[in-house]
């Protein structure tokens, strides 16, 4: 699966001052697949994403997207290659309407040209947003915000969609709903990376999984080969991972 990976992360390390948050992390995100990155709070998931997206400058390692080195570039420049991220805590533009939030997703020139069809697609995937079109994002519920964040990310017509902690603080029904939408998105050819704390659901929805503990990849593999028990042991540092 190495050769035609859409994104390749090699030996990535990151520091906050003296504190090292990532150690030599390497990953492959193959085209068209759903990849999950599983880890508890403080495992380094956010640092990993922030380093990939240029929000944090990595101290070592390389990030390549579609064969192009994007390590440490400005976030907006990385995004311009066709990568997009739905940020943790579904941070939407509070004082913009739902419609304007979605439009912001299509800011880049390529997407801007096709904003109408992209907008139609986003509303098709998340009909709930259509009803709230004119409302300010600040008045949305948690689930609606999450949908808006993902819908907005999709507006850029990305090749790679990274979703940071979709299930955080949401009711299981809502999470299930959002996950099934993500499957639809993946069907249409978009590579998806799910970053999650929740083991079961991540394994259920993804093709390939990585387990991140204390800034290191401790386990990886096709999800069909990974047992939930074993992942949990790695995750919590119990059993043979103790």
């Amino acid at each position: 699966m190495d050769a035609n990976a859409l994104m390749a992360i090699d030996g990535l390390s990151a520091h906050y001052g003296d504190f090292q948050a990532l150690y030599d992390v390497s990953m492959r995100f193959p085209k068209g697949k759903i990849i999950s990155i599983i880890g508890s709070n403080g495992a380094g998931k956010s640092t990993l994403l922030n380093s990939v997206m240029g929000i944090v400058k990595p101290s070592a390692g390389k990030v390549c997207f579609a064969g192009k080195d994007v390590t440490g570039k400005r976030t907006s420049a990385i995004v311009a290659n066709g990568i997009t991220m739905s940020p943790e805590g579904s941070s939407v533009f509070e004082d913009m309407s739902v419609h304007e939030n979605l439009l912001m997703g299509a800011y880049l020139p390529e997407a801007r040209k096709r904003k109408d069809s992209l907008l139609a697609r986003a509303y098709e995937i998340f009909p709930a947003l259509k009803e709230k079109e004119k409302q300010l994002a600040t008045f949305l519920s948690g689930g609606q915000r999450q949908m808006l964040a993902i819908g907005r990310a999709l507006m850029s017509d990305p090749k790679l969609l990274i979703c940071d902690e979709i299930s955080l603080g949401l009711a299981p029904v809502v999470v299930g709903d959002i996950y099934s939408r993500i499957l639809d998105v993946n069907e249409s050819g978009v590579t998806v990376v799910l970053v999650e704390q929740e083991v079961k659901r991540s394994l259920e929805y993804s093709d390939y999984g990585y387990v991140l503990v204390k800034g290191r990849v401790v386990m990886e593999g096709e999800t069909k080969d990974l047992s939930e028990e074993e992942v949990k042991e790695a995750y919590f540092g119990t059993g043979k991972y103790a």
């Binding site: 929000i55 976030t75 420049a77 939407v92 004082d95 912001m104 850029s156």
Partner: peptide, 24 residues
């Protein structure tokens, strides 16, 4: 306008604006 929206986005949330491809 697009310029105006990008300005508002950058004023509200720099990281999110950058994630939209806005060079803040």
């Amino acid at each position: 306008t697009w310029l105006g929206r990008s300005i508002r986005a950058a004023s509200g949330n720099v990281t999110a604006a950058e994630l939209m491809g806005v060079n803040t």
